[in-house]
Each structure stands twice: as C-alpha cells, then as structure tokens.
C-alpha cells in the first residue's frame, strides 16, 4: 500500500536543489529541476554507490543534427554518481550509458507548502 511521506518544506528545496531523506528504510533523493520535483533512490545500479549525493550537471551529446560536434545539453537534468560517474536523467530515471536500464522513480506531491513523496 502506498502512502505519502513528508520530505521537507518547499523553501528547503529551491530550483537546482536536492535533499536526501530516509523513507520506509530507503534513502530517497528529491530534486527540484526547473520548478518540478523528482524522487529517485539513493542507490546506483552500477555498484550501489550513493547516487543522490552526486553532482547535478548537464551532459555532452553529439549527433547527425549537431554535425557530430560535441554539444552541451540537459543542463540541470543530469545526476552523476559520485563513485564512478554513472549518469542519469533525473526527470526520467534513465541511465545514459545503460540504455536498457533505469532507476525506479517515485511520485512527488506538494500540499500546503510542503513536499511529500509517495511510496
């Protein structure tokens, strides 16, 4: 059965911010990306590193559209694990290097100026 758990007050999580909380014996990172909230587990799928303590960043891409030139993109959307630099898109939980694997994500809700995660 899912329930809602208090994460923090809205003021404590400004745009670009992140907070790591323990909910039902799991560590969850909650992020504010451009005014929207996202929640991810604090465990990297690679070697179980503390993912949500890593840097929030953009990333490099290159494609036919960029004429194969390197392009910086997704600024603020990308989380980089502090152990071995595995990259994830915070907004989807997708792993960038391992396209067939992704993190579970959790719903985040706001009531009365407070942020909750549903688990």
């Amino acid at each position: 059965m899912t329930r809602e758990y208090l994460v923090c007050e809205i003021d404590e999580l400004p745009i670009g911010g992140r907070i790591v909380v323990r909910v039902r014996n799991r560590e969850i990172g909650v992020f504010n990306v451009g005014g929207k909230y996202y929640a991810l587990p604090n465990v990297c799928i690679h070697q179980n590193g503390p993912l949500c303590l890593g840097a929030v960043s953009g990333t490099l891409n290159a494609s036919l559209e960029t004429e194969w030139k390197l392009e910086w993109s997704h600024e603020g959307d990308i989380l980089v694990c502090p152990w071995h630099s595995m990259e994830y898109n915070i907004t989807t939980g997708e792993s960038l290097p391992f396209r067939n694997r992704q993190l579970p994500t959790f719903d985040v809700l706001v009531h009365d100026g407070r942020i909750f995660v549903r688990m």
Partner: peptide
C-alpha cells in the same frame, strides 16, 4: 542529508 562518511562507502 544522511551521514556522508558512511554512505559514501556503501553498505557492508
């Protein structure tokens, strides 16, 4: 934030 000293090394 959790205690980074212990979390940075992961569970045993």
């Amino acid at each position: 934030m959790p205690d980074t000293d212990s979390t940075l090394r992961g569970p045993i």
